[in-house]
């Protein structure tokens, strides 16, 4: 149990590194594609100065609903694609922590399974708590 970082298995580090890279690249692609679609699709971003006020002002709260997001993705609506990319970006570190829990469990490092599990629970709690305030 009392081992330094250099003795940790390299497989877990490689997995963590890959999750982070893949998550960032995929979300970047979704966000960029969604933005382009939002300009092309009629009635989304628009082309008037007053549209900027509408898009940055209050009342444009996101996410609207899970159904809005799912429907938007199915119909390839720009803003829904962007939101899915932003969600994937936020989820990437969560996946990284989840992978760490598994890695430490395989090592049978109980203290670190507990520590990483606490971090994972706090991350998931932040999604839940954010919905209440």
């Amino acid at each position: 149990m009392n081992k330094g970082q250099t003795e940790a298995p390299h497989g877990a580090e490689l997995a963590i590194s890959r999750i982070l890279k893949a998550g960032v690249e995929a979300s970047l692609f979704l966000i960029a594609t969604g933005s382009l679609l939002s300009f092309v699709q009629a009635g989304t971003y628009g082309s008037l100065p007053s549209d900027v006020a509408r898009l940055t002002g209050p009342g444009g709260a996101f996410p609207r609903t899970a159904a809005w997001l799912a429907g938007g993705i199915v119909h390839l609506r720009g803003q829904a694609i962007i939101v899915s990319g932003l969600l994937l970006l936020i989820a990437t570190p969560v996946l990284r922590v989840a992978a760490s829990v598994v890695a430490f469990a395989l090592e049978r490092d109980r203290a670190f399974v507990a520590i990483t599990a606490v971090v994972l629970l706090l991350l998931l709690a932040s999604f839940a708590l954010g919905g209440f305030v």
Binding site: L20, S27, L28, I31, A32, G34, S35, S38, Y45, L55, T56, G60, A61, F62, P63, Q79, I82, V83, G85, L86, L87, L89, I90, A91, T92, P93, V94, R96, V97, V119, L122, L123, S126, F127, A128, L129, G130, G131, V133
Partner: peptide, 28 residues
Amino acid sequence: IGVTAATGAAVYFMRGEVLPFVAAPVAV
């Protein structure tokens, strides 16, 4: 920082403060 920021971002996201129109060009 990725994990720290994801915690804050999750709360802002659920509060509806993350606007696609603003957040997309900032992230990219």
